[in-house]
Computed example of a mutant assay.
Amino acid sequence: MASTINQVTFDARDGYALSLFWSAVTGFTEHPDYPNGPEDEENFIGPGGERPGLLFINVPEGKAVKNRLHLDLSPDTTRDEEVERLLALGATVFEDHRKPDGSGWVTMLDPEGNEFCVERSEAERTKA
Score class of each variant (00 low, 15 high):
residue 63 K to P: 06
residue 114 N to C: 02
residue 80 D to F: 01
residue 16 Y to K: 02
residue 39 E to G: 14
residue 104 G to Y: 05
residue 8 V to A: 12
residue 119 E to M: 15
residue 118 V to Y: 03
residue 52 P to A: 07
residue 104 G to M: 10
residue 73 L to H: 01
residue 21 F to Y: 13
residue 41 E to R: 12
residue 100 P to Q: 11
residue 89 L to Q: 02
residue 17 A to D: 04
residue 70 H to E: 08
residue 13 R to T: 12
residue 9 T to F: 08
residue 11 D to Y: 10
residue 22 W to C: 05
residue 3 S to M: 15
residue 122 E to K: 08
residue 73 L to P: 00
residue 124 E to W: 04
residue 82 E to A: 12
residue 103 S to N: 08
residue 35 P to R: 09
residue 105 W to T: 03
residue 98 R to T: 12
residue 100 P to A: 15
residue 88 A to P: 02
residue 13 R to W: 01
residue 23 S to Q: 10
residue 115 E to W: 00
residue 49 G to Q: 07
residue 69 L to E: 00
residue 116 F to D: 05
residue 50 E to W: 03
residue 57 I to H: 13
residue 15 G to R: 10
residue 103 S to Q: 13
residue 11 D to M: 11
residue 91 A to L: 02
residue 20 L to W: 01
residue 24 A to H: 06
residue 71 L to V: 14
residue 33 D to R: 15
residue 83 V to F: 04
residue 105 W to E: 03
residue 66 K to S: 12
residue 73 L to S: 04
residue 67 N to S: 13
residue 90 G to T: 12
residue 4 T to R: 14
residue 112 E to P: 06
residue 124 E to V: 02
residue 43 N to M: 11
residue 18 L to V: 03
residue 12 A to H: 08
residue 17 A to S: 13
residue 22 W to K: 06
residue 77 T to K: 07
residue 104 G to H: 09
residue 93 V to W: 00
residue 43 N to F: 03
residue 37 G to F: 08
residue 39 E to R: 11
residue 31 H to E: 07
residue 88 A to S: 14
residue 76 D to F: 01
residue 23 S to T: 09
residue 61 E to Y: 13
residue 34 Y to E: 14
residue 22 W to H: 05
residue 98 R to H: 01
residue 35 P to Q: 09
residue 33 D to N: 14
residue 48 G to S: 11
residue 13 R to H: 14
residue 93 V to A: 01
residue 32 P to N: 10
residue 116 F to W: 09
residue 8 V to H: 01
residue 84 E to A: 13
residue 125 R to L: 09
residue 84 E to S: 09
residue 76 D to Q: 11
residue 128 A to E: 04
residue 22 W to P: 04
residue 2 A to R: 13
residue 31 H to G: 06
residue 124 E to N: 03
residue 88 A to K: 15
residue 54 L to K: 03
residue 82 E to N: 04
residue 102 G to Y: 08
residue 20 L to C: 13
residue 33 D to I: 06
residue 66 K to V: 08
